[in-house]
């Protein structure tokens, strides 16, 4: 499964509050819309590190990197280089 879809599936299954099946587009603002909150970001970081074998710390830990599925996907790709 492509990285972007893996991330989307995780967010849909684990972070969307009511578990509703509505689609999340690549550009939906996940933090501003409340999909990712202060607890949700911890789950997301753990998922990204475990599934893509990357380490996220220090300067990488900025909200901009996790704003949308698109930015998360780009961030993972950059960290995986």
């Amino acid at each position: 499964m492509p990285t972007r879809e893996k991330i989307r599936q995780f967010i849909m299954n684990e972070l969307v509050a009511d578990g509703s099946g509505s689609e999340l587009s690549d550009t939906v603002l996940l933090i501003d819309s409340g999909v990712i909150d202060s607890l949700g970001i911890m789950s997301l970081l753990g998922f990204l590190e475990e599934n893509f074998s990357i380490q996220i710390s220090g300067e990488d830990l900025v909200p901009d990197n996790f704003a949308t599925i698109s930015t998360i996907s780009d961030f993972v790709a950059q960290k995986s280089l």
């Binding site: 202060s38 970001i41 911890m42 300067e59 830990l61 900025v62 909200p63 901009d64």
Partner: peptide, 13 residues
Amino acid sequence: LGKEGQGAIIFNE
């Protein structure tokens, strides 16, 4: 400390 807007993440960490 850190970047602007990074406070909640620093808190979690």
